[in-house]
Amino acid sequence: MGDTLRIGAHEAVTIRRSDPDCLELEARYEPHGSPPPAHFHPAHDERFEVVAGRLSVELGGINESYEAGAGFGIPRGTVHRMWNSGGAPAVVRWWSTPAMQAESWFRGLAALQRSAAAAGKARPDLLAFAAHAAGHRDTFRLVLGNSTLLGAVFVGCLGGIGRLLGRRPDPGVRGDG
C-alpha cells in the first residue's frame, strides 16, 4: 500500500488500506480546483474527515464547506461531488465500505490521467473514460443533468464505442474492456 495516484488535474489519492471490507485513502486536493462530474456509488458508503484545508461538497443538491476537523458521510446512492475551491491544499481521509472495485476505479482514473498528460491534454479521452466507467458500474455511476438515466445511457453508449475502438486505461486495470 502507499501508492499515490493522480486522479485529476487537482486531485491525488494515496492508498492506505485496501481489502474487501474497506478502501482507505488519503486524498489531496490542490487549491482552486473545480467540481468533478456529479456521481453516486450504488453499493458502497463513503466517510470523510478533513485533515487540513477546506473541502467544498455538493451532496444531494446542497452545497457545504468542511474545514479541518470536520467529518461527513455519503450513503450509497447519494449524488455528490467534491473539490477544493480555496487557496490552500486540502487533505482528507476517505473510507469506502465495502471496497467493491473502488481501488481498480482509482487506478484506472490515474492511468487515464497519465495518458492525458502524456498527450498534453488536461482531461482524459472521453471514450476511454466512458469505457472505464462502464466497466465499473458496481462502483461508480455518472449523473448528467440531474438524471441517473441520462448518465447511464451516456456511459453505456460511449463506453461501448470506446471499447470497440480499444480506448481504455493501462492494460490489466479491471473493468477497462
Score class of each variant (00 low, 15 high):
1 M>C: 13
1 M>T: 02
2 G>L: 12
3 D>P: 05
4 T>Y: 12
6 R>F: 07
6 R>N: 13
7 I>T: 14
11 E>T: 09
13 V>D: 11
13 V>N: 13
14 T>A: 05
14 T>K: 05
14 T>D: 00
18 S>K: 01
19 D>A: 07
20 P>D: 06
20 P>N: 10
21 D>P: 12
22 C>W: 05
24 E>S: 11
27 A>Q: 14
28 R>G: 09
28 R>S: 08
30 E>G: 13
30 E>D: 04
30 E>T: 01
31 P>D: 06
33 G>T: 12
34 S>F: 14
34 S>K: 08
38 A>V: 09
39 H>I: 03
40 F>H: 04
41 H>K: 01
45 D>H: 02
47 R>V: 15
48 F>D: 05
50 V>N: 04
50 V>R: 09
51 V>E: 08
52 A>R: 13
52 A>V: 11
52 A>K: 03
52 A>W: 00
54 R>M: 03
55 L>V: 03
61 G>T: 04
63 N>E: 11
66 Y>W: 09
67 E>S: 13
68 A>M: 03
69 G>V: 13
69 G>L: 08
70 A>W: 13
71 G>C: 07
71 G>D: 09
71 G>Q: 08
74 I>V: 15
77 G>M: 07
80 H>S: 15
82 M>Q: 02
83 W>C: 03
86 G>F: 03
89 P>A: 02
89 P>V: 13
90 A>F: 07
92 V>S: 15
93 R>V: 14
95 W>G: 15
103 E>P: 12
103 E>I: 03
104 S>E: 15
105 W>S: 01
106 F>A: 05
106 F>R: 07
108 G>L: 09
114 R>K: 00
117 A>W: 03
119 A>F: 02
123 R>V: 08
124 P>Y: 12
124 P>V: 12
125 D>H: 04
128 A>M: 15
132 H>D: 02
133 A>E: 02
136 H>K: 12
137 R>E: 11
138 D>L: 04
140 F>C: 11
142 L>F: 03
146 N>R: 11
146 N>Y: 13
147 S>L: 03
147 S>H: 10
148 T>Y: 13
154 F>Y: 04
155 V>P: 13
156 G>Y: 12
156 G>Q: 09
157 C>F: 12
158 L>H: 10
158 L>G: 01
161 I>F: 15
161 I>H: 15
162 G>M: 03
162 G>Y: 00
162 G>R: 12
163 R>W: 07
164 L>M: 08
165 L>G: 12
165 L>Y: 06
167 R>P: 08
171 P>R: 06
172 G>L: 08
172 G>I: 09
174 R>T: 10
175 G>A: 01
176 D>A: 00
176 D>M: 12
